[in-house]
Simulated scan of single mutants.
Amino acid sequence: NGFWVGPVEMKLEDYFRYSDQAREERPLYLFDPKFAEKVPKLGLEYEVPVYFQEDLFSVLGHERPDYRWIIIGLAGSGSSFHIDPNSTSAWDAVIKGSKKWVLFPPDLIPPGVHPSPDGAEVACPVSIIEWFMNFYITTKTWKKKPIECICKAGEVIFVPNGWWHLVINLEESIAITQNYASRSK
Rank of each mutant, 00 (worst) to 15 (best):
E148C: 14
A93F: 15
P85R: 01
K145Q: 14
T138L: 11
V122C: 07
P117T: 10
G119H: 05
I128P: 00
I95Q: 02
S80I: 06
K96Y: 02
D118R: 04
P146S: 07
S116V: 09
G119S: 09
P117Q: 09
S98H: 04
G97F: 00
I109N: 13
G97D: 03
D118P: 05
V122A: 06
I137A: 15
W91G: 11
P115S: 06
A90I: 03
G78N: 00
H114K: 09
H114V: 15
D84Y: 10
S127Q: 00
T139I: 09
A123N: 13
D118K: 06
A93R: 09
S127C: 01
Y136H: 13
P110D: 13
F104V: 09
P125L: 04
S87H: 14
F81K: 02
E130A: 00
S116E: 07
I128T: 03
I137V: 15
D118N: 12
N86M: 06
V122T: 11
P111V: 04
S89H: 12
T141F: 14
P105F: 08
T138E: 15
G78R: 01
M133R: 14
T138W: 12
G112E: 04
F132I: 02
A120N: 07
S98R: 04
T139R: 04
P146N: 08
K143V: 12
V113W: 10
P106W: 06
I109Y: 10
W142S: 14
G119T: 06
Y136Q: 05
I128Q: 01
P105Y: 11
W91T: 07
N86A: 07
C149V: 08
D118G: 09
S79C: 06
G97P: 00
W101P: 06
P85L: 03
P106K: 05
L108Q: 15
P110Y: 11
P85N: 01
S80Q: 05
I150D: 05
P110T: 08
V122W: 05
V122G: 08
V113G: 08
I109L: 12
I128Y: 03
I109W: 12
D107K: 07
P146A: 08
V102C: 10
E130N: 00
S127H: 00
K144V: 15
I95G: 01
K96C: 05
K143D: 14
H114W: 10
T141Q: 13
D118A: 06
P146V: 04
W131P: 01
P85K: 00
G112P: 02
T141V: 14
S127K: 00
A90Q: 07
L108H: 03
E130K: 00
